[in-house]
Nucleic acid binder design. Structure first.
Lengths: 242, 242
DNA sequence: CGGCGGGTATTTGTATACAATAGCGTGCCG
DNA sequence: CGGCACGCTATTGTATACAAATACCCGCCG
């Protein structure tokens, strides 16, 4: 990951998520290239990826702006994530093998230890949590699903949410994982599906509560795909349906 | 869409879907550039998009190969599409306005006329069908959802499927649209969800039947995300979960 | 005062050259 | 005869120059 394009991707992504680049502001390739210390070529690469992540928006003429996320947008992302990750849990349950089960238990033990401390170790919590969810996604055995979820999950959002978590919520998260593992042990896809769905929805509300009043829902940020009209030119034309 | 990058994208995509480039074969940027009549720069752009579509796979060192799709992969894509597009139909039903409803009816009238002919007009069917599904997706008002479905729907697959359709199946598709419109008229999200889900699942089986024996499920095409091991470097690291 | 048009400056798109790196074959050594 | 290492070749990554398109500004005209 030492390539300039990846470096640019991470740098720009960081600047967006940290708020260093304010929503709605234009991202000139030249300016970004300078700030990242690389040429425009890898920046263009990075911009394309960020566009796929919906972290930036592009006008019909390919000018890039930092996307402004309303709470509704975030809820949307969480809803879709709940749907897809629940599906992943179901598939994983149906395919679960004992080795992975052990690894899952190991992850949740790490989480348990991290939150048992007087001052919970947030970094360890986030990392072990990440690993656990990834094991499940991997076990679901679906490249498509993995690709879709990849664009849906903004780790920094998780991080910030976890920091806001009280010890009570950390423990709830951990025991939800326990239940998930139970469902996996029984190879009960429906159970795993339900638990995972609840897990994600709860996470959304934790996020929403933490951000109440801080980032109120924007006014007219129309959360729709621009249709017909004047040559919108989306990267992946929505037109291709069947 | 006259840009070289788009032209390259469409050209390469066409070559992949038509089978001109056989699954597993390597895609050299230089060679593609020559065949597309452009330089490597727009080709690289196109490759990144195709990678997001999962039409090509990249090794850890970014060498590109035509993805080989097993029937299981296709089923996977249809399953996810059913989930997401059903969700879109539900959201659309809850937000439906009368103008769009009229447009939907108009689309399905086009479909009705196209399949009423002695020799059904497949092109018109596909186009009106596309427009109808797109209207629904647009009405769902979710950028995220639109982005996810965009990568999931391979129009050429639809096209080939439609060509295989007998008049009976074309009519079934049309009447399913009718039922969908009924659900929209009543603003019944659950109904719309169910009908759409069934609609897509039926389409998958039409596809599977048409390809039975033609493209049998490949042997070990492991449909899983490559995990840990030796620096897999996925475009959107699956690691970023929470 | 507002809208239109043209010109300029900014921004993105493309091509090309060069650099770095992975893959691969060959030949040497054990 | 097998394996390792070296070096060559093919392929991708990056930078830069230039071309094309567009947004913006300013002046003109209604």
């Amino acid at each position: 990951m030492t390539r300039a394009a990846d470096s640019a991707y991470n740098t720009i992504r960081g600047m967006i998520l940290s708020g260093e680049l304010s929503p709605g502001s234009q991202l000139g390739e030249e300016a970004l290239a300078e700030r990242c210390g690389v040429s425009r070529t890898p920046v263009r690469d990075a911009l394309r990826r960020l566009e796929a992540d919906l972290l930036i928006r592009r006008t019909g003429t390919q000018r890039s702006f930092v996307a402004d996320w309303s709470l509704a947008d975030v809820e949307d992302a969480f809803t879709l994530r709940a749907m897809l990750e629940a599906h992943a849990a179901m598939r994983a349950a149906e395919r679960m093998d004992d080795a992975v089960l052990e690894q899952l238990k190991h992850c949740n033990d790490r989480i348990r230890r991290a939150i048992a401390l007087p001052r919970p170790d947030t970094a360890e919590f986030v990392e072990a949590n990440r690993a656990l969810h990834m094991l499940i996604l991997n076990q679901a055995r679906s490249r498509r699903l993995a690709a879709l979820l990849g664009t849906l999950i903004e780790q920094p959002v998780v991080w910030r949410t976890a920091q806001q978590y009280g010890s009570e919520q950390l423990q709830r998260s951990c025991s939800e994982h326990d239940e998930l593992i139970c469902a996996f042990e029984r190879r009960d896809g429906a159970w795993a599906h339900a638990v995972m769905s609840a897990h994600i929805h709860r996470a959304f509300h934790a996020y929403a509560d933490a951000h109440k009043g801080i980032a109120p829902d924007r006014k007219g940020s129309d959360n729709c795909v621009q249709f017909s009209g004047t040559t919108p030119q989306l990267a992946h034309p929505v037109g291709e349906l069947g």
